[in-house]
């Protein structure tokens, strides 16, 4: 996994609450058996005026002029500013894959759906929770200033504006550690293989009906 330490980038808006995973990446794109290539179809139904299909040349499709990510001023953004309950809906990891493939490294919102939040960390994407009032301020600053950038320092757990204002955020210590160092969680867990085996032996003795049933 790619490590996340400090990121400075252009900020783009997804200015509505309850953005669901179907909206982030519509289901027809879930048919891919790969992890990459979802970026051109991020927010597909909002971004284009016609219906997207896998394998279609997206550069030929009519863009929705009202969708912010299509505006010149947000091209190249790596920080997504969003509203409450971002990423609700399904467990599809294609949602963080699409955000990542598009070029986002970080999402800032007042709250997230649990599964999406969790999935982000496993893909080197940092979901930051800031107070709704602060997020509202950031939205206003972003709208008022073309080229608006933010810096995210994960080690220090702060979001920094170009004026130097800092806003602290919380992040779980284990997830932070993995993200900072780009660690593979499976490898880390397998270091505990003995503990897993010990547990498994005890559990098998206690609940033998759970084992060797499906063969």
């Amino acid at each position: 996994m790619r490590a996340f330490t400090v990121e400075t980038g252009l900020v783009a808006p997804m200015d509505r609450a309850n953005v669901d995973t179907d909206m982030i990446i519509p289901k027809q794109f879930l048919k891919s058996i790969k992890r990459s290539g979802f970026g051109p179809n991020l927010f597909d139904e909002q971004r284009y005026l016609d219906e997207g299909q896998p394998g279609r040349d997206n550069s030929q499709r009519p863009l929705n002029p009202d969708f912010p990510l299509n505006a010149a001023r947000y091209q190249g953004a790596s920080v997504l500013l969003a509203r409450d309950n971002f990423g609700c809906g399904s467990s599809r990891e294609h949602a963080p894959w699409a955000l990542d493939d598009y070029g986002f490294r970080c999402v800032i919102a007042p709250s997230y759906a649990d599964i999406f939040y969790n999935n982000c960390f496993k893909n080197g994407l940092l979901p930051i929770v800031l107070d709704a009032a602060i997020v509202e301020q950031l939205f206003q600053q972003m709208y008022a200033n073309e080229g608006y950038q933010l810096t995210i320092d994960l080690e220090r757990q702060v979001v920094i504006t170009s004026a130097g204002d800092e806003m602290a955020f919380e992040v779980d210590a284990f997830r932070k550690h993995c993200l900072l160092h780009g660690l593979d969680e499976i490898g880390l867990t397998l270091e505990q293989a003995d503990a897993i085996r010990t547990y498994e032996t005890g559990w098998r003795q206690q609940s033998p009906w759970l084992f060797d049933v499906i063969q």
């Binding site: 990891e93 963080p96 599964i115 893909n123 969680e185």
Partner: peptide
């Protein structure tokens, strides 16, 4: 529910 990384 879990994501694909967790499936792995």
């Amino acid at each position: 529910g879990i994501g694909t990384s967790e499936v792995e």
